[in-house]
């Protein structure tokens, strides 16, 4: 008998998962050989990828601290991935004890692992849901229990929008989330792109090819396309820039591999 369309799909560990590939880039061991294999091929196609991820992670941590400075104490992190060093709830709760954090991911393994890591952590939870169905996220018990949508929230869409194809209507999903959050809320986004760094469009296409056989395809977008996700938000200084250039906290920045300037990062405030 054929399985009805509304049955959930089983999990297939032989397909490289974008969350585990990402963990591999970040030096973690939450990955299988298929993931590492895909990660190696991606790095070969686009040398320096792990450095970009590192810069992405560092940006995210700065953006979380920035949000706390702006008085925000609740975080909705969609496409949160596999917990690793410097998770949002750790950074947020270190800067603002008692901050509320809801993680969302659609990768069942990432969700199960997050659940294990969050066991015993107060004010933090994980929801298995898909960015393409914002309603499911907003209506989840976790969001309703931990996030007060009448008050500003930091909405993190960090390194996730580039996993939505145009056909998935990512802008519509963002707009739906925007409608649900209070004025003064912040939207934190990073997005893959060949713009900004030294890599050529062909190299971008080659990584996209690697991701074609992974759990989600990867879509590089132009600055203009990424800017459109901020419709209804005012970008805060310094606007949409390469991750390392977004409010750097001093110290370093000489000697950076120029590849880390690939892609875009930005924070917008809902009017």
């Amino acid at each position: 008998m054929e399985r009805p369309a509304w049955a959930p799909q089983g999990i297939d560990l032989s397909v490289p998962s974008v969350s585990r590939i990402y963990d591999y880039y970040l030096g973690g061991s939450h990955n299988f050989e298929v993931d590492r294999e895909a990660g190696r091929r991606a790095i070969e196609a686009f040398p320096g990828l792990p450095k970009i991820m590192q810069a992405n992670r560092a940006f995210m941590r700065r953006a979380v601290r920035f949000s706390v400075d702006q008085g925000i104490t609740q975080f909705l992190d969609i496409g949160s991935g596999i917990p690793t060093f410097g998770n949002v709830h750790e950074v947020a709760q270190a800067a603002s004890p008692g901050a509320h954090v809801v993680y969302v991911d659609h990768d069942p393994v990432a969700v199960a692992h997050s659940r294990a890591v969050l066991e015993g952590v107060e004010h933090a939870a994980i929801v298995a849901a898909d960015l393409r169905s914002p309603r499911d996220i907003l209506d989840s018990a976790e969001v309703r229990g931990l996030i007060d949508l009448e008050r500003p929230v930091a909405l993190l869409l960090v390194a996730v929008l580039h996993f939505l194809e145009d056909a998935d209507e990512p802008a519509k999903a963002v707009a739906e989330l925007r409608e649900a959050i209070a004025p003064g809320s912040l939207l934190v986004v990073t997005h893959a792109s060949v713009e900004g760094g030294p890599r050529r469009p062909e190299e971008g296409e080659r990584v996209e090819n690697v991701y074609r056989s992974a759990s989600s395809p990867l879509i590089m977008r132009s600055r203009a396309e990424v800017e459109r996700f901020f419709d209804g938000f005012d970008l805060v200084e310094p606007g949409l820039v390469s991750a390392p250039l977004w409010r750097p906290d001093g110290s370093d920045d000489d000697e950076l591999d120029p590849v880390v300037f690939s892609g875009f990062a930005g924070v917008g405030r809902k009017a």
Partner: peptide, 17 residues
């Protein structure tokens, strides 16, 4: 941890299925 997560995830999807 990953294997445990994978198992848990599989159990959860199988339950849903």
């Amino acid at each position: 941890a990953l294997s445990r997560a994978a198992l848990a995830a599989r159990a959860a999807t199988e339950q849903a299925l």
